[in-house]
Design a binder for these strands. Sequence first.
DNA 1: TTGCAATACTAACAAATGTTAGTTAGTTCA
DNA 2: TGAACTAACTAACATTTGTTAGTATTGCAA
Lengths: 201, 201
Amino acid sequence: MLVSSKISVQKSTRKAQIFNASLELMRRMGYLSTSMRDIASAVKMEAASLYNHISGKEVILSETCFLMAEQLLKGLAEVNDIYFNPIEKLSLAVKNHVKVLTENTHAGWVFVHEWRNLSEENRIRFVALRDEYEKGFTTILKQGEDEGVFQDVNNKFAVLTILASLNWVVEWYKPQGDMTPEQIAEKLTEFILSGLKKENN
Amino acid sequence: MLVSSKISVQKSTRKAQIFNASLELMRRMGYLSTSMRDIASAVKMEAASLYNHISGKEVILSETCFLMAEQLLKGLAEVNDIYFNPIEKLSLAVKNHVKVLTENTHAGWVFVHEWRNLSEENRIRFVALRDEYEKGFTTILKQGEDEGVFQDVNNKFAVLTILASLNWVVEWYKPQGDMTPEQIAEKLTEFILSGLKKENN
DNA sequence: TTGCAATACTAACAAATGTTAGTTAGTTCA
DNA sequence: TGAACTAACTAACATTTGTTAGTATTGCAA
């Protein structure tokens, strides 16, 4: 296992209940449209009582975003440290990405969609992490190019396109669906590497 | 030209000014965080005066979303009607998609990101159009498979992944950037068809 | 010039929001 | 027992929000 999950393995503390309920609500209605009163009523308390457990609405968003970012970065770092073959690296990076996003589907969705609503300070920190993550992918592509395994593409363009397809997983992945995260990762890797044309192997 | 633009070729009526200012603000701050007072001050009037020109905040969002959807669908329909070769079809569908999204960058962004904030009634209508659009792409892929040009992939999966990469264009496209919409479309088509591996043609 | 339609304004509303203050009940533990 | 802590409550706050009502001004058509 590349990365350990903190969000999905929560003790059932009141704080954890609040987080879980919040993330579910935010996935359904969006961060801004989810009020503290909505959250409170989901965990059967008054809005004011939430402040005995969390310091404000934004920490739900920020803790989620930064935890996910941390997991993604950690996984990518491990991949970039350990394995040599660029194809293998890319494949493992994709697997890690899908794994992290699907481990807690609500958190994954909120992470992908709602980071824009972070306070300015947090947003700046977050974007820095995102840039770092993108750089990790760029490194893999560059290595692939240098070794003559990958086409000579516009790296920035390619990385963004790849990450776009990876992130879209949060849109339609269902734990009870007909594809496991591993299968999804495999299909995505295949798509990224070989595209649609049949002549390709 | 496959599709004519309505949003980008606006007469400078007061309503058009309001729409333009709104879309720019909404791209920067999001739909929900953009208040009528923000919009009003951007066009130098009072919030209440906006109602002489538009019936409410949501019409800005809904008109934008449905206009974009209409343009996308129209372009796709033309492609599916006229051309025969699936590869050519896909390539033209991609080109149309990128074209529509980049013609008015703010509208494109709002369309991709904010449709979730439509009223329930509009959201249902919108999702129906989106499903129809996805079906158009599925048809192309299926044809490619039947003719032995495309790999035998999970079509639903492939279409969603493809559209994800196409939509991500709104994230980073800049009219003054170093790639034209046509070049972007070309690169995307290449990526979708052939992937990253070098052995592919 | 008169009159009307278009467009702007001021004022205000009712609702919703995140959060704070102050209080109370229950539990833990010395 | 009693002190300290935890976690719930009620009440209220200051803002912000989209929108409406009513009124003034403007500019064009008759």
